[in-house]
């Protein structure tokens, strides 16, 4: 099924390519694209470059190569703790959000009353601006007299944020796979739980892993909601923000590079799982 889709896509792409624009237009398009990619990557590459700058100020001129800022980052107990906090909350919110999303996606294979209402409910956290997503929780927990802390308020904020994306990633997976095996098992009298654990789950496992990895990455980078509900245990983006606002600390570029590497790597692995063929 999947490969047929790909073949169809290729045929389409071929036809699409049959329109021939003049060479100069193609060239212009490529030059434009090169500028676009430079716009995307230039600043990030510059950040990598600056992270090796010996200078005490964030910026230029480049005073010489040094890895001392990486030492500063890894030898700062505060930063290591923030990193551990972020990874902990990221893992836990990925697990919670993926589980909830899986359950919701299974439900969405049925027809039930109020389906579109539930869909709107799922989409609410991405429709309302992020800053308000943080503030509503600040008010809500403030009046419920729940103290802001990593494993309560921050975790809730992260799951709220991640859940819609987890659902949107996972649902097409559950909706798209060939149900013939599942139906055969049902005809042979297998119990729902057996069908789930032996057939459905193995079929969508790459999708689940991808969803969990994306969720982790989203949570790891979350800032604007977290800042309003954070307690004493800060996450890494909150810590990063503090360092920018307080003093524009010289270790910021090195810290940024480490954060970028972690989130890009998890997303990239998620992406690879996502593209895995279900068959």
């Amino acid at each position: 099924m999947y490969s047929r889709g790909v073949r169809k896509l290729n045929v389409m792409a071929n036809n699409f390519k049959t329109i021939k624009y003049g060479r100069q237009y193609n060239l212009a398009l490529w030059v434009y694209a090169a500028m676009f990619y430079f716009f995307l990557y230039g600043p990030l590459l510059m950040l990598v470059f600056l992270s090796f700058n010996k200078s005490e100020i964030v910026g230029f001129p480049f005073e010489g190569f040094s890895i001392k800022w990486y030492h500063v980052v890894f030898e700062s107990p505060e930063l290591i703790r923030a990193l551990a906090n972020s990874i902990g909350v990221g893992v836990l919110s990925a697990v919670i959000a993926t589980t909830l999303a899986l359950s919701l996606s299974m439900a969405f294979r049925h027809d039930f009353w109020g389906k579109s209402l539930v869909l709107y409910l799922i989409l609410v956290p991405i429709i309302i601006p992020g800053i308000i997503g943080g503030i509503v929780l600040l008010i809500f927990f403030g009046f419920s007299e729940i103290r802001p802390s990593l494993w309560t308020t921050v975790l809730v904020a992260h799951v709220n944020w991640v859940l819609p994306f987890a659902f949107l990633t996972l649902y097409p997976r559950l909706h798209g796979f060939d149900r013939a095996l599942e139906e055969a098992a049902m005809d042979l009298g297998a119990k729902p739980w057996v069908i789930f654990s032996r057939i459905v789950f193995p079929l969508i496992r790459p999708g689940i892993i991808a969803t969990a990895l994306f969720s982790f990455s989203l949570s790891f980078d979350e800032f604007v909601r977290t800042i309003f509900v954070t307690g004493f245990q800060r996450t890494i983006p909150v810590q990063f923000w503090g360092l920018i606002v307080d003093e524009l600390a010289p270790q910021l570029p090195a810290m940024a590079v480490i954060i970028i590497l972690i989130s890009i790597l998890t997303s990239l692995i998620g992406f690879i799982y996502m593209r895995r063929k279900v068959n």
């Binding site: 980078d221 990063f240 970028i260």
Partner: peptide
């Protein structure tokens, strides 16, 4: 796939 805080900070 990287933090928007970093992508804003970079400027």
């Amino acid at each position: 796939w990287t933090s928007y805080v970093i992508r804003a900070f970079v400027w």
